[in-house]
């Protein structure tokens, strides 16, 4: 039955077609070429004119993380079992699927848009309002990322410059604008929040929940770095480039 459902869903997606843009990887330097290490394209092309301010914000975030976020997330993770925290993460993620669907469409990634729509439908109905990720675990439809920052990039809008924002962390002007609009477009879903304070509390709650699932990673990164600021900036750009290789992901979990 499961296989049958999966075939039907895949057929629907195939009918949607896919005219997405050609993969960037075709013109990309292979990791096996020495030229891969000759330059760091993202850092060279995205300027960091406010480095002093950004370094200061990095320090502020570091202190906030160490003394506020991390202790809160640690207590939270000890209080709630991981299953429950994963359910909360699934619920919030599912609420954002319509925003991802629109962005995938705007990027002409029709197949990905189909997957997002399928995930939203299956998880909302079969996953009891998005509490479970049935589409991912039972039908193999993995999460697909699509945000306004990427849509703007697709249509030729440049990054602007590198920024470190309080709490949000590493971003660029374009990505920050995209994240803000994506976030605001979520407000109709926060039907239970009457004021901006409650909305902000929900946002912080989501951050803490997400952090509780990745505790220790930041400390690990920071401890082994020579310049944590440069490491995080490079990590941000490498990670973003990686997450946008939709056609041929290097981190394919099927190996």
């Amino acid at each position: 039955m499961k296989t049958y459902l999966r075939v039907v869903l895949l057929l629907c997606l195939a009918l949607c077609g896919n005219t997405a843009q050609a993969t960037e990887s075709s013109g990309e330097t292979s990791v096996l070429d020495d030229s891969f290490y000759e330059s760091t394209p993202n850092e060279d092309t995205v300027p960091d004119p406010f480095e002093h301010f950004n370094r200061l914000m990095f320090e502020v975030n570091d202190v906030t993380y160490t003394w506020v976020m991390e202790p809160v997330a640690s207590v939270y993770s000890r209080t709630l079992p991981e299953d429950i925290r994963q359910v909360a993460d699934n619920f919030c993620y599912n609420l954002q699927e319509p925003v991802r669907f629109i962005n995938a469409l705007l990027q002409l990634r029709f197949s990905d848009a189909g997957i997002v729509l399928t995930r939203f439908a299956v998880n909302t109905i079969g996953g009891v309002g998005g509490l479970g990720d049935v589409a991912g675990t039972e039908f193999g439809f993995k999460r697909v990322e699509a945000g306004l920052g990427e849509t703007l990039e697709y249509w030729g809008v440049g990054d602007g410059f590198y920024l470190v924002m309080p709490v949000l962390g590493a971003t660029t002007l374009r990505e920050f604008a995209g994240t803000t609009v994506d976030g605001l477009s979520m407000t109709p879903y926060y039907f239970f929040a009457d004021s901006w304070r409650e909305g902000a509390a929900i946002y912080m709650g989501r951050r803490v929940n997400n952090l509780s699932l990745r505790l220790g990673e930041y400390e690990g990164l920071k401890q082994l770095t020579i310049d944590p600021y440069a490491a995080l900036r490079d990590g941000y750009f490498q990670s973003r480039a990686q997450s946008r290789k939709h056609s041929a992901p290097r981190t394919d979990d099927k190996l």
């Binding site: 891969f36 290490y37 020579i226 310049d227 440069a230 490491a231 490079d234 490498q238 992901p249 290097r250």
Partner: peptide, 21 residues
């Protein structure tokens, strides 16, 4: 001579850190 963790190159990351030294 390099390790990629979640698509992030360790060598390139350190390269960026040593640039200013």
């Amino acid at each position: 001579y390099d390790v990629f963790v979640e698509g992030i190159s360790l060598v390139r990351n350190y390269m960026e850190q040593f640039k200013g030294i």
